[in-house]
Amino acid sequence: MRSGSFLLIAASLGFLFLYAPILSLVVYSFNDSRLVTVWGGFTTKWYGEVFKDTALVNAALVSLRVALIAATLATILGTIAGFVLSRFGRFRGRLLFTGMVTAPLVMPEVITGLSLLLLFVGLEQATGWPAGRSATTIVIAHTTFCLAYVAVVVQSRLAGFDRSLEEAAMDLGARPLKVFFSVTLPIIAPALISGWLLAFTLSLDDAVIASFVSGPGSTTLPVEILSRVRRGVSPVINALATLIIVVVAAGFLIASLMMIRAERQRRRDEQKALTGK
């Protein structure tokens, strides 16, 4: 099996490529030397420095607040959008609708950022709202692009489940709203959770759009990090990066395990319901 071993080697190298840089960040965060790439012994002092740095801590708090609100809004709107895409069939403006849901997935960030900023400036001129750039404008911007991701996640989940359950509920006399809340929503709940988590991390991660739409006093963590890393490598940023990676990886693993378990449970339940045992 020559092709088999080729695949194995290629895939291993690929995974090495994916993880080596992350590993190097983690290793160098414990490096006791200002010259980040020269090993000067083991230390954990940079982690202390992260929490002493008020600019970083404040930016992190702004980021968390923005991400919580934006992810929640994006999940609500994105779920509706995903539902409309997979259940409503044809309607007037569907082409426009699908276009507006899929385009943000690939739209270069500089364009999204610039266009939203100019919208906010134009709106402020015409109506007085929003007054200046603030956390609110970042929330609106993040909701808009995260919405698209949630919609795609929800849509693929809806496409994968048996529509007969909804039809059965409808036949039993449930109104559409009731069907949605008591049948559809519980089934797609795992997709909502992963959609929310994805939106949350995307919002926490965005530096470019936030640079355009944030104002003084509403600097988010990535904006702060971007302005620092442009000046070069810093051990404090390495420590911060390690903290973020550990938190994200732990959250991701827990969420994935929970989803796999929920999926198994659902399959068992469906099986039971079908066999009538």
């Binding site: 994916l18 993880y19 840089p21 992350i22 190097s24 960040l25 160098y28 980040v36 790439t37 994805l198 991390t201 926490l204 991660d205 530096a207 990535p222 990090i225 971007l226 890393v229 070069g232 490598v233 940023i237 390495n238 990066a241 973020i244 990676i245 994200v248 990886a249 991701f252």
Partner: peptide, 15 residues
Amino acid sequence: PFWTSFLLRVYAWIG
């Protein structure tokens, strides 16, 4: 890796 910060993953390459 897609979920961990894009910015920080690019930054890692500087080092």
